[in-house]
Amino acid sequence: MKTFVCMAALALPASALGSEIRFVGTATPIDGGDALYQESHVVTGSCQQGQFNPESHSVEYTRSNEGAFATKDLSYTESALRPTVDFRQPGFSETLDINNRDDETLEIIWQAPSGSTEEATLNVSSSLVADAGFDNFVRQNWKTVVENGESVEFEMVAPTRGDYYGFTLEPASDDRIDADHVVRIRTTSRLLGFLVDPIVLGYNSDGLLTDYLGLTNIRENEDANFTAHIRYDIEAMPECELTP
């Protein structure tokens, strides 16, 4: 990855260099068609020993005819894999909070479009992943999955169910994704596999997400979320490496 550093930054230790990732995603139907919405992402962090360490992440969801209709804010203070999450989708009166308590428990509060509120507390394990933590999980396992072509098992939080389930991250190929590397996240449960399609992800050679193909967190209606292909345009990269 090419590195561009201003002269003032050269006087700072590597651990103090600030970094930011900016990217914009456009979601379209799986089979093609007009854009459903856009996502504007800003991930801030720092370079520590030459590698990017995420600290916070904000997302604004917009449509051309109505502007912002949903927001998400994440904090990676406790864990890069299990962020604290604050998600708001006012048009459906939906909110989701995932609070990481000292990386020992995750407290989940979901206000559903129906008006009901569901709460759950999950114990944390080292292989538990929540929300956008999947992106950091892929990079942490880059050598195993992308370079060596092996698979890794983990658990993913299903916040609206107040539980977590077993999944596998593995190399993949998909004609719908034009990326340097393609991986897939699929459930290890045969029963759940009939209900949940795999998520397919594209990454460039630097370890930045370029494609997401699967179920999203944005509602199509009160009963279902969009399934979409999100293509990401990278606007800013960190000054250090993303993968080990």
Score class of each variant (00 low, 15 high):
residue 10 L to Y: 08
residue 11 A to E: 05
residue 11 A to K: 14
residue 14 A to Q: 14
residue 14 A to E: 13
residue 14 A to L: 11
residue 15 S to F: 01
residue 16 A to I: 03
residue 16 A to W: 02
residue 16 A to Q: 03
residue 17 L to Y: 01
residue 17 L to G: 05
residue 17 L to Q: 12
residue 17 L to I: 13
residue 18 G to E: 05
residue 21 I to E: 10
residue 22 R to F: 00
residue 22 R to K: 13
residue 23 F to Y: 11
residue 24 V to E: 09
residue 25 G to Q: 05
residue 25 G to H: 10
residue 32 G to Y: 00
residue 32 G to M: 04
residue 36 L to C: 11
residue 37 Y to R: 07
residue 37 Y to G: 07
residue 37 Y to P: 11
residue 38 Q to H: 11
residue 38 Q to N: 13
residue 41 H to F: 11
residue 43 V to M: 08
residue 44 T to K: 12
residue 45 G to C: 00
residue 46 S to R: 05
residue 48 Q to C: 13
residue 49 Q to P: 00
residue 50 G to F: 10
residue 52 F to T: 14
residue 53 N to V: 15
residue 55 E to V: 09
residue 56 S to N: 11
residue 56 S to C: 04
residue 56 S to V: 06
residue 57 H to S: 00
residue 60 E to K: 15
residue 60 E to M: 13
residue 61 Y to H: 15
residue 61 Y to G: 02
residue 66 E to V: 15
residue 67 G to E: 03
residue 68 A to C: 10
residue 69 F to M: 07
residue 69 F to G: 10
residue 69 F to Y: 04
residue 72 K to G: 02
residue 72 K to Y: 07
residue 72 K to V: 05
residue 72 K to P: 00
residue 73 D to P: 00
residue 74 L to Y: 08
residue 74 L to D: 09
residue 74 L to Q: 14
residue 75 S to F: 01
residue 76 Y to W: 02
residue 77 T to F: 01
residue 78 E to D: 10
residue 79 S to F: 01
residue 80 A to W: 03
residue 80 A to D: 12
residue 81 L to N: 07
residue 81 L to I: 07
residue 83 P to I: 12
residue 83 P to N: 13
residue 83 P to S: 02
residue 87 F to A: 02
residue 88 R to S: 09
residue 89 Q to S: 15
residue 90 P to L: 02
residue 90 P to A: 03
residue 91 G to N: 14
residue 92 F to E: 02
residue 92 F to A: 03
residue 92 F to K: 00
residue 92 F to D: 00
residue 93 S to F: 14
residue 95 T to R: 04
residue 95 T to A: 09
residue 98 I to K: 01
residue 99 N to R: 14
residue 100 N to Y: 03
